[in-house]
Amino acid sequence: METSSAPSTWHPLPDVHAFLDRAGGFLRSRPAPHTVPLTVTEQLRTWGAGVYGEDAPVFGVLERGGEVRAAYLRTPPYRLIVTPLTPEEAGSLVAHLVTAGHEVPGVNADSDTATAFAAAWRARTGIEPRLHERMRLYRLGELRRPEPAPRGRGRLADERDRELLARWYAEFVRDIGESGAQDPAAWADRHITERRITLWETPDGVPVSMAGVTARVAGQLRIGPVYTPAGLRGRGYAGAATAGASLAALTAGAEEVLLFADLANPTSNGLYQRVGYRPVTDFAVYDLPGAGG
Rank of each mutant, 00 (worst) to 15 (best):
His96Gln: 13
His96Ser: 12
Val98Phe: 00
Val98Ala: 11
Val98Pro: 02
Thr99Trp: 08
Thr99Glu: 15
Ala100His: 13
Glu103Ala: 15
Val104Asn: 05
Pro105Thr: 09
Gly106Leu: 07
Gly106Gln: 10
Gly106Glu: 08
Val107Asn: 01
Asn108Pro: 00
Asn108Asp: 14
Asn108Cys: 12
Asn108Gln: 11
Asp110Arg: 03
Asp110Thr: 08
Ser111Asp: 12
Asp112Gln: 14
Thr113Glu: 03
Ala114His: 07
Thr115Gln: 13
Thr115Asp: 15
Thr115Ala: 15
Ala116Tyr: 02
Phe117Pro: 01
Ala118Asp: 02
Ala120Cys: 06
Ala120Arg: 11
Ala120Asp: 05
Trp121Glu: 02
Trp121Val: 07
Arg122Gly: 01
Arg124Val: 09
Gly126Cys: 06
Ile127Glu: 12
Ile127Cys: 04
Glu128Gln: 14
Glu128Ile: 08
Pro129Ala: 10
Pro129Leu: 03
Arg130Gln: 14
Leu131Thr: 06
His132Met: 13
Glu133Thr: 12
Glu133His: 06
Arg134Cys: 10
Arg136Lys: 08
Leu137Trp: 11
Tyr138Gln: 10
Arg139Glu: 15
Arg139Gly: 12
Arg139Ser: 13
Arg139Thr: 15
Leu140Tyr: 08
Leu140Arg: 07
Leu140Pro: 08
Gly141Ser: 04
Glu142Trp: 06
Glu142Val: 14
Glu142Ala: 13
Glu142His: 10
Leu143His: 01
Leu143Asp: 02
Arg145Gln: 15
Arg145Asp: 13
Arg145Trp: 11
Pro146Asp: 09
Pro146Tyr: 02
Pro146Gln: 10
Ala149His: 14
Ala149Asp: 05
Ala149Gly: 04
Gly152Val: 00
Arg153Ser: 15
Arg153Thr: 13
Arg155Gly: 02
Arg155Val: 03
Ala157His: 04
Ala157Lys: 04
Asp158Lys: 07
Asp158Ser: 14
Asp158Ile: 00
Glu159Asn: 09
Arg160Glu: 12
Arg162Pro: 00
Leu164Trp: 09
Leu165Ala: 05
Ala166Ile: 08
Arg167Gly: 13
Trp168Cys: 03
Tyr169Met: 09
Glu171Arg: 15
Phe172Val: 07
Val173His: 03
Val173Ser: 13
Arg174Phe: 05
Asp175Met: 11
Ile176Thr: 09
Glu178Met: 12
Ser179Phe: 01
Ser179Ala: 14
